[in-house]
């Protein structure tokens, strides 16, 4: 009985959603609401107004910077909550990782990972730093870096990964994303400007475009570094097991 009711409910919901899909504008339709209003302005002025060649980056970080800052704050608060539930490494305690067996991963895995990792790291940096010109940006680059570190952990062991990226470094950098975003935003307020205007006071008009690009890059870098570190922290927190030391919690 319960199953029949659930199936009916899901079926009705599916039909409803599909009906809505049919009323959506076609992709690239010049008459759709998104294409009628702001797109022309973005395409024509984005590079000049935001200092980024990639229009997507300009829209996300500049035109809609306020929304993006909110999103970044929500995502990082969520990840911080996950970390709070899973718990932090504490001084003087001993931790074990489930993969700490005497059998190492095969030489094929280790060689392939060792060969790929430099390229993954380079691609991650490229995605962050080149995000204002080509597709990509801070979050994507940070996620690529985190995936690379996960590969490292899978090939060489979580324990080694935990030593390569020590907790002290992770704790320091984890919050970088919302913090740099907010600081750059407040910097725009100095000297009577607007929040998130990507400007600093007392900079000559000639230098403003370059400054905008650099401040955008700073935000991208903060999101990338913070994102990579907090993902690695979640993995370490999820994987480790406390085996001794300290007093019972």
């Amino acid at each position: 009985m319960k199953k029949v009711v659930s199936l009916c409910f899901i079926g009705a919901l599916g039909v409803l959603l599909l009906m809505l899909v049919s009323s959506m504008p076609r992709m690239g339709d010049p008459g759709s609401p998104t294409n009628r209003r702001v797109v022309d302005r973005y395409l024509e002025k984005a590079e000049e107004e935001t200092g980024t060649e990639n229009v997507i980056t300009g829209v996300i970080l500049n035109y809609r910077g306020y929304d993006t800052m909110g999103e970044v704050t929500v995502i990082f608060t969520g990840l911080a909550a996950v970390l709070a539930v899973l718990g932090r490494e504490k001084r003087g305690r001993v931790y074990a990782y489930p993969d700490r067996s005497p059998v190492r991963s095969s030489i094929i895995v280790r060689s392939a990972a060792g060969f790929l990792l430099p390229f993954i790291a380079l691609f991650s940096l490229y995605t962050v730093l080149h995000g204002e010109i080509s597709p990509g940006g801070g979050f994507q680059g940070g996620a690529v870096m985190a995936a690379g570190m996960f590969l490292f952990a899978a090939a060489f062991g979580l324990w080694k990964a935990g030593r390569t990226v020590p907790p002290r470094l992770r704790f320091a950098v984890e919050g970088a994303a919302p913090i740099t975003f907010f600081l750059v935003g407040v910097a725009g307020l100095l000297g009577g400007g607007e929040f998130l205007a990507y400007m600093l006071p007392r900079v000559s008009a000639g230098l403003q475009p370059a400054l905008r690009t650099w401040l955008t890059l700073l935000v991208e870098g903060g999101i990338g570094a913070g994102g990579a570190m907090i993902f690695i922290s979640v993995l370490m927190a999820l994987a480790r097991e406390e085996v001794g030391g300290g007093q019972a919690a």
Partner: peptide, 23 residues
């Protein structure tokens, strides 16, 4: 931009987190 995010987060990061959880 979305393709990059999906490939890195969806195929990379969450897979490892899920595997760890299963472990």
């Amino acid at each position: 931009d979305l393709a990059l995010t999906e490939a890195a987060v969806g195929a990379g990061v969450t897979t490892v987190l899920f595997v760890t959880a299963i472990f």
